[in-house]
């Protein structure tokens, strides 16, 4: 019964979207589109000095949204840490993992780490930035965590790094309150030479802070999910 109502609602919605919205959205002549994004595009190189227009929007024009997004990630990491407390501490039997897996992960880890740092540092020149770079570094960490004993999961150390990276984001923003423009997250450094790594004002600094925060946060969250064991008593470890 519930399935039937659900199906009717969903297909009604889909039908409506296709007939009315599709008729407007698809054939619309978008070559002379006027929007805030196009205005930003025309001014972004002059105003920010970043080669990647999307990055300049994410960090400068809409930096407040990025602060909110960092907070959302922080909240879900806190929530996972809260919910996973109190399980039996689970020592993964890493002797069972195959030799290829262990050696491969050891070899892969430095490259992933370096690649992640490259993506974070060049966020204002190429697509990428703090978030994908942080995820790549975190993936490198937990491939090694899951297959061998080289890294022990140190929860508290990761929390300290994460907290200080987040605070440095906010401190960079508060510095903007003391500039002549008196608003949060102003781009107060000079714009540098276009298309090099040291350009675009505070964008590399903020992305570095975000990258460190995301990588430590995700490593902590996945470590929490992985190390504590919940399940019925009848399962064998």
């Amino acid at each position: 019964m519930r399935k039937l109502i659900g199906l009717i609602l969903i297909f009604g919605f889909a039908f409506y979207m296709f007939t009315i919205v599709a008729a407007i959205v698809i054939p619309s002549d978008s070559s002379e589109k006027k929007s805030v994004g196009i205005d930003i595009l025309q001014n972004s190189v002059r105003q920010t000095g970043a080669a990647n227009a999307v990055t300049s929007i994410v960090v400068l024009y809409r930096g407040f949204d990025t602060l909110g997004e960092v907070t959302v990630l922080f909240l879900s990491a806190l929530g996972i840490a809260l919910l996973m407390k109190g399980g039996r501490s689970f020592k993964h039997k890493t002797e069972d993992e195959s030799f290829i897996l262990k050696t491969g992960s050891h070899l892969l880890f430095p490259f992933m780490f370096l690649f992640g740092i490259y993506i974070i540092a060049h966020g204002h020149l190429t697509p990428g930035g703090g978030f994908p770079g942080g995820v790549i570094i975190a993936t490198g960490f937990f491939i090694v965590l899951m297959t061998s004993d080289v890294f022990k999961f140190r929860d508290y150390f990761l929390t300290i790094i994460e907290g200080f990276a987040g605070l440095s984001f906010i401190v960079l923003g508060i510095v903007g309150l003391f500039t002549p423009e008196k608003s949060f997250l102003v781009n107060f450094m000079n714009k540098g030479v276009f298309n090099t790594v040291f350009s675009a004002g505070i964008i590399p600094l903020i992305y570095a802070a975000i990258g460190i925060k995301v990588s430590s946060e995700l490593s902590g969250a996945v470590g929490n999910l992985f190390v504590s064991k919940y399940g019925r008593r009848s399962e064998n470890e």
Binding site: G37, I40, L41, A53, V58, R62, E69, S76, G129
Partner: peptide
Amino acid sequence: VDPLPQALVLTAIVIGFGVTAL
């Protein structure tokens, strides 16, 4: 193309990921 929606999606993907993890 218009860069603003791409910035919005960056935020939305991260938020969706946070909810899924929780």
